[in-house]
């Protein structure tokens, strides 16, 4: 019974972390689908979102929910600005150039955050409506913070799914990701699609940040969690939004289990072992579609 409780507890913690991975991976997937670029600054966008919400809550004394909405809007604007100023002029350049630019952006954001007064290189935390509240279920304890992550992640995924499947803009985005030229011929504004993609991806990063903040605290290097989302996205197929979440969950649960039941060190590389195994056995991931290159 003890073993069973511990197992449930571990898996539940893994699910919460997995949802964060999934959300960051969702940002990767959105950008990859529309521009074929992996945005290595996604983790830094998450970090920026966490810092913004921290400032809103502790310095401006806004309520958690207002802060959430403001953070999402602010991050959306950041994403749009990034796209307009930096990435739009790189459309049509080789992928590696754009990837290096996103790495440059991640350096830049990280060091700018460290220079802003009141943010800097220290570690911060803030109170949320979920702090210190627990749901008990037998011997298994789930904190509301973890629960909030899972619930919000599910809501977001549903929203993204509906947006892509049923809205006009979502359809335009899917069309653009398949064939840009044909999309232009059909009257879709590809620049607007790109701009919106970056906006949504940055906003998702911001939400990830505000949700993760109570668990890992707000600090300059929390963006490195974004790297762990890469295996999640690959596992899910890199082009499938539901795949990103499933991938995130698998990585999160595996990591959590490895942390409890395996020796020290396995936890850090579990995600990467899965990644390499997936790439060797099934490179298209769980939900991806095998791409065939035509001559």
């Amino acid at each position: 019974m003890e073993f069973f409780n511990e197992l449930t507890q571990t898996i539940l913690n893994g699910v919460a972390i997995g949802c964060i991975y999934g959300m960051v991976a969702l940002g990767f997937v959105l950008i990859y689908k529309s521009t074929e670029v992996i945005n290595f600054a996604q983790g830094e966008l998450l970090m920026l979102g966490a810092f913004i919400s921290y400032s809103l809550i502790t310095q401006l004394h806004l309520s958690y929910w207002t802060a959430l909405v403001v953070t999402i809007l602010a991050m959306g604007i950041v994403g749009a600005i990034l796209e307009r100023v930096v990435l739009r002029s790189l459309v049509g350049e080789p992928t590696y150039a754009i990837v290096i630019v996103t790495i440059g952006i991640s350096y830049f954001i990280r060091s700018i955050v460290s220079m802003i007064p009141g943010w800097g290189t220290d570690t911060y935390g803030f109170r949320t409506p979920f702090t210190d509240k627990f749901l008990r279920w037998g011997d298994v304890v789930i904190s509301y913070e973890y629960l909030s992550i899972v619930v919000l992640a599910l809501v977001l995924i549903a929203a993204v799914f509906v947006f892509f499947g049923y809205s006009r803009m979502g359809t335009a985005m899917r069309a653009t990701s398949q064939n840009q030229l044909a999309a232009v011929y059909m009257g879709i504004s590809v620049t607007r699609v790109f701009s919106l993609t970056w906006t949504i991806a940055a906003a998702l990063g911001g939400i990830g940040g505000i949700l993760l903040a109570p668990i890992t605290f707000v600090h300059m290097n929390m963006g490195f969690i974004g790297l762990k989302a890469v295996p999640a996205a690959v596992l899910g197929g890199f082009t499938s939004p539901p795949g990103a979440i499933v991938g995130g969950l698998i990585i999160g649960i595996t990591e959590s289990l490895a942390g409890v039941y395996l020796e020290e060190g396995w936890k850090d590389i579990a995600a990467w072992i899965i990644l390499i195994a997936v790439l060797i056995i099934r490179p298209q991931g769980l939900f991806g579609i095998q791409e065939k290159k035509k001559v």
Partner: peptide
Amino acid sequence: QTGLQPALFGLLIILVMLFEP
């Protein structure tokens, strides 16, 4: 600012790629 060096570094990488891919 200790962050100045990495900030400029990141910025220069972006600029080089923007103007000379």
